[in-house]
Design a protein around this nucleic acid. Structure first.
Lengths: 185, 185, 185, 185
DNA sequence: TATGAATGAGCATTCATTCAT
DNA sequence: CATGAATGAATGCTCATTCAT
């Protein structure tokens, strides 16, 4: 399943043959069908095995501590997971429109992912640390930034910022805003 | 080419057959090879025809006006284009890893897209309207937000915000920040 | 289609590969799918093309002439057709239980085949030439004899009767009965 | 073996998988190869186990009693066996052309089956009960009628004759003939 | 005996591409 | 320009058979 995930991510689902996966995994192609009824089910199983939603839940839940550093830490770990499961993400985006099961995973990932962020932000507003604001918007923004960051990592790698620097500055930006003198004069 | 783009976006490149495209376009499958040397080249031609980078350049360049409303307008139009060229985007994400030509388009889109934003932000800093900050980070954040917004539109459509509201609030959030009493007390 | 029929009859449907048929027919295996959507549909088309029910109708209908020689002639021609379409018959028996379409052909062949015989017999009773009797029974008997004769031709070929002799004697037997002095002396 | 026979008859030999048979028989597919060297040998063993030739021998031999009722009884029992071993017959017809062993069984069944009938008929001629005639022809006719009756039972079940009525009338027909005034005036 | 994982050759089917017309 | 018949390599999947346990 790990092999399959890797190969699907690299070559796309349709372009990757069962024989290639089997060879890569060191088994005969017939054996795959002993464990999975079809290539498609293999994809679904692989995606589900590598679902990182539980990880997100763990790192995002229960944190009631102050904001800036915590948010950076959260973002860094979130980003780490996305990096680790880079293959899974690629497939989610590539096959999400062709395979219902994959779409479900992608939908639940993106909606729950930003929901968890949203809840954290709300708790910080309640704690008086953040301004009252539409947390749904911010949560989706944060989620988008982290997700796209992971997805476009290779394109922007020429930039002179390290990964962690980029994330930290993004969080700062979100927290502080970029407008001069924004609400005190 | 429009038909092809639509069908590739809906079914994926590999899953869409030349015959299907031809039938949909009302021609025989042989005729396609009169205009394009291969299915792959058809994809590339379609993607390039629908490249919306020029549009982005138009809406983003030359605007030296004050920030908040302009940025909102820019974002709205950016989002409109993304919405319109939704098929193109899908293909960019789906086939970007398999087809070099497509990847080039995606790369130039994302890098130039955020570069243009970056330049605008820099000009507003120079104009004294925005705080000095890492404009590359903000530009990528904005780009990410708008891009993911377009890509996850259907997932979040249950939300009680309209598209334009979401975009406006996002811009406000970026401009103002979300932290209470930031840096002045 | 003729090639397919022959090969299906000889090797059975499942054992005969599409490639074999195509090779035998002098075409590429892909081309078969240009004309038939599947191997199964090819079988059905072949069976229907070789349906000899129309032939039976022709030789059996409209004959109102006296019995013994006519019946022999009918039987001979019936048997000729069965011999000619021997392949078709084999398939009918072999695949009739697996393929609904084939079964339909077999059903209509056997029911209509004996129905036509039955009608002829009835007309001869009306003409006063035959004893009143259950024509359905006789028709099915005749049909069975001719059909099995064709199907077991090779098994019994060691017999010292020619095909036409066997058929003639069978008809005589049916007409005369085999019992001595039957019920009138 | 019984399971195998049933499944081969229902689905055809090639379409029935060893795994299906094993599952149906409540054993693992590997175990089958402990008892039979191959799928083909399993078929042959099953056919041979269900060979009803011995039954035919029993019911047809040694009967020297008068004709009409005896023949009806014989036919009825013959038909019963055919009905009981319906699966076996199907396979005989379906696989007789593909499998040498099966063909042998089918050949010996049909030739010996009609031979036995033939001998009985000859004995009744010798006893003065039947007219001297070509018993081979009559025997094959009788065999054909009974065999086809069994094979087309489902097609003609709409008929208003019961199974036993049909058989009885067939025998009467063969004995009496259908021609009026057939040889005494 | 009994299991079921493992193999790999074989098959129906698909499809990009070619080409005679 | 346009057609669609023709090709054949490629692919997902099946299944009889083997074998370690």
């Amino acid at each position: 399943m790990d092999t399959a995930l890797l190969m699907f991510a690299e070559g796309g689902f349709a372009r990757t043959t069962v024989k290639d996966i089997a060879t890569s995994a060191g088994i005969s192609n017939g054996l795959m069908y002993h464990y999975f009824p079809s290539k498609e089910k293999l994809l679904e199983a692989a995606i589900e095995k590598h679902s990182f939603l539980p990880h997100l839940r763990v790192i995002l839940k229960g944190t009631e501590e102050p904001c800036r550093e915590v948010l950076k830490k959260i973002a860094a770990r979130f980003s780490d997971i996305l990096k680790q499961e880079n293959n899974s993400i690629r497939i989610l985006l590539q096959e999400g429109h062709s395979n219902a099961e994959v779409k479900k995973v992608w939908d639940s990932l993106s909606s729950e992912g930003s929901l968890i962020l949203q809840q954290y932000l709300s708790s910080r507003i309640a704690a008086g640390e953040l301004k009252p604001h539409n947390t749904e918007v911010t949560a989706r923004c944060l989620f988008s930034i982290l997700f796209m960051f992971s997805f476009t990592r290779d394109i922007f790698k020429s930039s002179n910022l390290s990964d962690s620097q980029f994330i930290e500055e993004s969080i700062d930006s979100i927290l502080n805003g970029i407008q001069k003198n924004n609400n005190h004069d």
